[in-house]
Structure formats: C-alpha cells, structure tokens
C-alpha cells in the first residue's frame, strides 16, 4: 500500500500576527508546524501501513521553513518527505494549491491512498482535499470520522454528510480527508508523540525539495501559484467583536439576571 499524506505546515493561530494592511500573515510571528488535523492523517497512514505494509510519503507545499513540519512527520515515522517550494507556488488559492499537490502526487506515481486533514487551521476551507481528488479524477470521502476497513483495492469509511454519517466504499486509488476525533477500525486515533531518538534522526533525514519546473512534465506551470488562482483576497479585517453590552454580575444576582434574560425571550 503506497500512501501519500498531504500536510500543510501552518502557524499556531493563537500566536500568529496578521498583517491586515497587506492582507498576509506575518510569517516571522510563528514557526510552521503540522496542521492539527493533518496529524490525524499522518497517524492513520502509519496505522494502515502497520496492517498492510508499504510506504508513507508526506507532501507539503510551503515556503522553505515548512521543512520543519516535514521533519516532524519523518520523526513520527513517514518514509519519505517532499517539500514543494518555489516562488511560483506562492499566492495560491485552493484551486492552485490542489492543482500543485495533485501534480506532485501524479509525479510520485503508483499511489493507492491519499490522506489529508479535514481542513487547515489557517485557511479553514476544507476544500483542498476534494479538489485534489477531482484533479486526479479519483473518488474521495470528506469529513471522515471512521476508517472501517482498508484492503489493497478498496477502503470503507464513515463520512459526515451533515444530517447523518454514511458508510462509503471507495475503490483505490482514492482520497480521504479526516476529521477529529477519528476512529481507525475500533480504535480512537491519537497522534503519537515522536521519540527523542527519532526527532534527532529526523534532523538529518533527507527532505526532497521539488520546484515548479520539476513538475513541468505533469502539469501546466500556469496552473501554479497566484497565476493559477481563480480568487483574490481584496480586503482583510481583524474580527471586531459584536458590540455586546457585557454585564458582569456575581452570585445570587447572576441567577436573577439569567432568569430575566430567559423571561424576556419567553423561554420560561
């Protein structure tokens, strides 16, 4: 089983500063780490490999400092790490990002299963996984809460449709995007903590770096980065809080106040 895990190196959103003037993240304000949701994709990939054998390849499209996240993936046990980095990839929206990731997967060739997290903590779209699947013309399941069974030619998953969870059988190759918490067979998946020895080893591990030209035989360079993006961010604001006329009370008065609110809304 050849598994590809798509990892987005993301900043810690609680620490990152946002340059509202320029509409971009102040990259110096936080180091890049594996997107929280992608940690589950890495873990599930490793669990599947334990059962079926094969290899796990991590692919990220990121600026050079994204390498740190890939080394973390290596420390956790992925066999190979590829960083897609090039000025031509910059400014990509979900269309261009998914096009680039799909090109890299095509370049790798011989894949059976692609795993990714449900969404990223910064972009927050949940769109990249399904778009990658469309570019590769393979089936996908999104918001997967359980990987029920996986064999050499198919995977059975439980996917959140909104009103209910549906059971889907996908022929491989296929892509699945994982929610959290996620169950693998009967076990709730908890991302492992890499061992110190593995962290140290991962520091010296090779992270392959691919640029735009390296993908020229499998993709159209015009499809990458800002040039390949169909959307533009025209303005960005910090979220201003809704004007809540916050009242602070304590003790017994609190109960009275809550009752007042409930009564004014005819709930009691």
């Amino acid at each position: 089983m050849n598994i590809v895990v798509l990892i987005k190196p993301t900043p810690d959103v609680t620490k990152v500063r946002f340059d509202v003037e320029r509409g971009v993240v102040d990259r110096s304000s936080a180091e890049l780490e594996i997107n929280q949701f992608d940690l589950y994709a890495v873990e599930v990939a490793l669990l599947i490999k334990e059962v079926l054998g094969g290899s796990v390849t991590a692919v990220s499209m990121a600026p050079p400092q994204g390498e740190r996240a890939l080394r973390d993936a290596v420390a956790r046990g992925v066999d190979k790490a590829i960083l897609l980095t090039d000025g031509r990839f910059a400014g990509a929206d979900t269309l261009a990002t998914s096009y680039t990731l799909a090109a890299a997967v095509r370049k790798l060739g011989g894949y059976d299963l692609i795993l990714c997290g449900e969404k990223s903590v910064d972009g927050d779209t949940a769109h990249v996984g399904p778009e990658v699947a469309e570019h590769l013309n393979v089936p996908h399941a999104a918001f997967v809460t359980r990987v029920v069974e996986v064999s050499s030619n198919k995977v059975v998953v439980e996917s959140d449709y909104g009103d209910a969870y549906y059971l889907l059988e996908l022929q491989l190759p296929a892509l699945i995007s994982l929610s959290r918490p996620v169950v693998f067979r009967d076990r709730v998946v908890e991302p492992r903590t890499p061992r110190l020895g593995d962290v140290l080893k991962a520091r010296r591990a090779r992270v392959e770096v691919w640029d735009a030209y390296y993908l020229a035989d499998v993709a159209d360079l015009e499809g990458f980065g800002l040039a390949g993006s169909a959307t533009r961010v025209v303005r960005v604001f910090n979220v201003f809080e809704k004007d809540r006329n916050s009242i602070t009370v304590s003790g017994e008065e609190g109960v009275d106040r809550i009752l007042e609110v409930l009564r004014s809304r005819r709930l009691v």
Partner: peptide, 23 residues
C-alpha cells in the same frame, strides 16, 4: 456550507477550473 456542500462544491469548482470560496 454543510459538510456535504463543502465536499461537493470543491469537486465541482475544480472540475470547472474556477474559484470557490468556503463557508
């Protein structure tokens, strides 16, 4: 932007090679 819509929409956008804005 239900889970269903956020799974279907991007496939359609990628098929049509156009942009999609989430949620």
């Amino acid at each position: 932007a239900t889970p269903w819509g956020r799974s279907l929409g991007p496939r359609v956008a990628a098929h049509l090679k156009t942009g999609i804005t989430a949620d």
